[in-house]
């Protein structure tokens, strides 16, 4: 009897510890949003919420890619730089007069190549993901500078209007980027729960040795995660350049921090093995809401980084506490 109750309690605690981080963060986002709506007329305007949604969607898309890497027990510090490089490559190809699809394929191709290199270095050469992707951060940022020759690109050839319309447009009042985010979120959730790929990501993040013994193609799965992460950075880059109507090699600078923070806030375990697409999205939303609230509260924008940093530290602390309880 006692044992059964003990097990039920253990199961409940485990369930709580897994399910609730994104749920708590959702509550926090709604609470902060509700309070802001009440006290700030500026917050509750359609324009402000529209902009908030757009701002966080870029980060959320990349956070979903990042999450797949972190589930495997890795990390991808290069996403901001890959975003910059993809933006520049797409911009230059369009500026040279090629149609949009060529620019998109070139941009995403370069992004995937960055991911492939990261993945091979980590999976095949067994190098530390931290070091490999830090190296890629440097290389990709420098290549963006080399290719752009430090000039802004703001003419996008024959398909310029379409390009700007896709990146900056909306459907039924919802920014295109938000629609893309939701689409990626839905597909990724399905893949994580119902495909071999998803199952293998979780398996190797929990026990790589066991995964290898059961015949899971560990290297291929790892490489695919890094490629997916870079791909999301590429998609975010192309949409953002279309929205901004211009691109410099500084695009995406320091985004890796916000992206990784979003995943951690959304309940992804940096030790690997745990994470959801929804968590990555809601984590990004929390950062944006906090940022926006501070701004409207008249807090000096220079302080934003400090507050965001504190939120991240709190999220990691929360994760640590939950871990201690569930183990």
């Amino acid at each position: 009897m006692h044992g059964q109750a003990g097990q039920a309690a253990r199961r409940l605690r485990w369930t709580l510890s897994v399910v609730t981080q994104p749920a708590w963060i959702t509550l926090a986002v709604l609470a902060i949003g509700a309070v802001m709506c009440l006290i700030s007329p500026a917050f509750r305007t359609y324009d402000n919420i529209y902009n908030d949604a757009r701002n966080f969607a870029f980060i959320a898309i990349m956070a979903m890619g990042q999450m797949t890497v972190i589930i495997t027990g890795g990390i991808d510090l290069s996403v901001g730089a890959v975003m910059g490089l993809t933006g520049i490559v797409t911009g230059l190809v369009l500026q040279a007069g090629y149609p949009l699809w060529v620019g998109v394929i070139a941009g995403l191709g370069v992004a995937l190549l960055c991911g492939l290199i990261n993945g091979i270095a980590v999976a095949k050469l067994n190098l530390s993901p931290f070091i490999v992707t830090l190296g890629m951060l440097s290389v990709a940022r420098s290549q963006a500078l080399v290719l752009s020759n430090n000039k802004m690109v703001y003419q996008f050839g024959p398909d310029e209007q379409l390009f700007v319309a896709i990146g900056g447009g909306d459907l039924f009042g919802i920014p295109s980027i938000v629609i893309v985010m939701v689409a990626i979120g839905v597909v990724l959730t399905i893949l994580l729960n119902h495909s071999r790929w998803g199952r293998y990501l979780y398996a190797l993040g929990s026990n790589e040795h066991a995964s290898r013994l059961t015949g899971i193609p560990v290297e291929a799965v790892k490489i695919s995660a890094y490629m997916f992460s870079s791909l999301t950075a590429g998609i975010a880059a192309i949409l953002m350049v279309g929205w901004l109507g211009a691109v410099t090699n500084a695009l995406g600078t320091a985004y890796e921090l916000r992206v990784i923070a979003s995943t951690v806030i959304g309940g992804v375990d940096l030790m690997g093995g745990i994470g959801t697409a929804y968590g990555a999205i809601i984590g990004a939303a929390l950062i944006e809401v906090v940022r926006n609230a501070l701004l409207l509260a008249g807090v000096d924008p220079y302080w934003q980084g400090t507050f965001v940093g504190v939120v991240i530290a709190c999220a990691v602390l929360l994760e640590r506490l939950r871990h201690r309880r569930s183990d």
């Binding site: 199952r199 979780y202 398996a203 929990s206 026990n207 066991a210 995964s211 013994l213 093995g273 745990i274």
Partner: peptide
């Protein structure tokens, strides 16, 4: 045993 803690018994 080579098991993954984060997956179910069936998985």
């Amino acid at each position: 045993l080579a098991l993954c803690n984060n997956l179910t018994a069936a998985a």
